[in-house]
Design a protein around this nucleic acid. Sequence first.
DNA 1: TATTGTTATACTCTATAACTATA
DNA 2: TATAGTTATAGAGTATAACAATA
Lengths: 156, 156
Amino acid sequence: MAAPDATLRGLTGYRIQRAAIRAMARVNAALAPLGLRRSTFSALAVVSDTPGLRQTQLAEALAIERPNLVQIIDDLEAAGLMVRERAEGDRRAYALLPTEAGRAVYARALARLQRAEAALTRGLSPAETQALHRALQIIEDNAGEETGDEIEIPSA
Amino acid sequence: MAAPDATLRGLTGYRIQRAAIRAMARVNAALAPLGLRRSTFSALAVVSDTPGLRQTQLAEALAIERPNLVQIIDDLEAAGLMVRERAEGDRRAYALLPTEAGRAVYARALARLQRAEAALTRGLSPAETQALHRALQIIEDNAGEETGDEIEIPSA
DNA sequence: TATTGTTATACTCTATAACTATA
DNA sequence: TATAGTTATAGAGTATAACAATA
């Protein structure tokens, strides 16, 4: 018997989980000095790149549930990095816009993250990193499909 | 502007997170019919492959904190899949052992997971999957190192 | 003094149901 | 009747401090 977790190490899902937990801790550490978490950073990034989008659209882009987005936007608004503006033509909706401060913090956060990314992928060539991204996309897509697994259809 | 999350997609950390969240949901779904979660499965796997190890050793193998392991072992014991036996020579410690039922459930869970893994990695060649594992290991190792980042040393 | 397992606790992330105000 | 945003809530996963029993 090799390592006690040799069986688990043979499972892609387990490896992704282990790498993700540690990588997320690094990302959090890189963002914390700017008062951001992963969730607030990613929201700020999408809104900065696509100003004016609605909360529902942002939730879909980030693959999070609408209710969970509320606190994220609240935090960004409280920090003065983003504003909710009533959307024209639909008074139920809000258009999300970054403030000047929000754009500045976004740029600083992105720079910090890119340094953290370089540390994370040290030892991987650009081609290997590219291949990693491709593999992760395939897995995300595969995992996002409906399977019908576990849906028992009575045979009569 | 391409997709609203184009910037985020350029970040390895973000891609790992997205893939991990979806993959873990699939793993949970594969384990749920057997009454297992990811945490209880991985504990059962390590103990089945390395019977007799201590809780501290198991926590280290799984990279979880000792307090969080208590409930996991409690659940496995309540399900009749594992037992705590007082360790010989050290009455503070427990040797963890799988029951017969535990070994049987482990085998069934592993088979289910391997089918789920095949679905997750559909479209990736064995070589690509191998390269993915290697890349994830490098990232896990890189992220686990101490950096000294953010430790401000007063210059005088 | 240090270690093993434990308790208590807290924080984050995620998910669902139900509400409000609009459409 | 449906949609946008919200509230309330619950469940995991993870983390730390402190305790009892033992070394």
